[in-house]
Design a protein around this nucleic acid. Structure first.
Lengths: 167, 167
DNA sequence: TATTGTTATACTCTATAACTATA
DNA sequence: TATAGTTATAGAGTATAACAATA
């Protein structure tokens, strides 16, 4: 990022304002950070952070997960998951349910209020996505997803594991 | 981000591992954060942060800029620019030159060592970019840049102004 | 009175590591 | 002895706001 790479297909336009043209790596970091910041901004409406949203999404489907498993999926530190789950539980969006057969372990499950909030969250995420890609056609958006997924796979990124959780 | 958006062209593959497939907004945030983190990792070789790199790049070309002007271009807080320039100056990479006609103002200029470091920086950025897009053809990489630039323009992002500087 | 640069302070975020309770 | 969860502490990074010099 920070606009240093020399792009392979150099644009020979006469007046680049300052320095090299932005390569795809810088653009990715720039646009990605904007997308993250804008999403966070929208989430303030629900008084949630993106990290909260990631947990709500994760526990919404599939087999129950305890906190270690959530941490592993998100590549987050377990102590951070504790804090986030605390906040979600205080707000009545999730519950800690003891796991049968191991009293140390607590599965995190959505409450009815949590399911409702998840609905709002999905509406916000969809609006966010539409705003972000408003200047793209449907085909272009699909193409973008293909390219990004290819990069994500190449980099070994796990689905749903935002590097903002990174440990 | 955090994988919440419902994509317009839902992939009906049988076994999505967990929750909705990643929309382009989440993918952008995820891949962008990875790109930024990986670049920062590479820069440790030079004991520089991405923010340092952005300033070096900015002062490398065009008319001289003072610290306020650098802050405006990067959309950073002026006090943060002071700190970053301090560190670059301590390392002998830039100099503060009094601006003729206004003794309050200091232009930031590269030293010879700074120009040399900028060269290393560009090699690192190029290697980073090639690694990131290794799974893309040249055409695909060019297409990616087109789409990202369109999104960046639509969002009003300034060239070189990474939201990580955001004030 | 406004502007450039600087410094000091406070705040936020999060990793680390110590601790408990269970296994 | 190892694991799940929790808590306390410390550190990094950064915005805020007060300040000094100059305009």
């Amino acid at each position: 990022m920070y606009d240093l790479a020399v792009t392979r297909n150099q644009n020979p336009s006469p007046a680049e304002p300052r320095g090299a043209p932005a390569g795809s790596a810088f653009l990715l970091a720039q646009v990605g950070a904007h997308a993250a910041a804008r999403f966070a901004e929208r989430l303030t409406e629900l008084s949630l952070s993106p990290a909260h949203a990631g947990i709500l999404r994760l526990v919404a489907t599939g087999p129950r997960l305890n906190q270690r498993e959530i941490a592993a999926r998100l590549q987050a530190m377990p102590s951070r998951v504790v804090t986030l789950v605390d906040e979600l539980e205080t707000r009545g969006l999730v519950e800690r349910k003891p796991r049968a057969g191991d009293r140390r372990s607590h599965d995190i499950v959505l409450t009815a209020a949590g399911r409702k909030t998840l609905g709002s969250l999905r509406r916000i995420a969809t609006a966010h996505e539409e705003e972000l890609t408003a200047t793209l056609t449907e085909d272009e958006q699909a193409q973008l997803v293909v390219l990004l997924r290819r990069i994500a796979d190449g980099a070994g990124l796990l689905p749903g594991a935002h590097p903002g959780y990174r440990r």
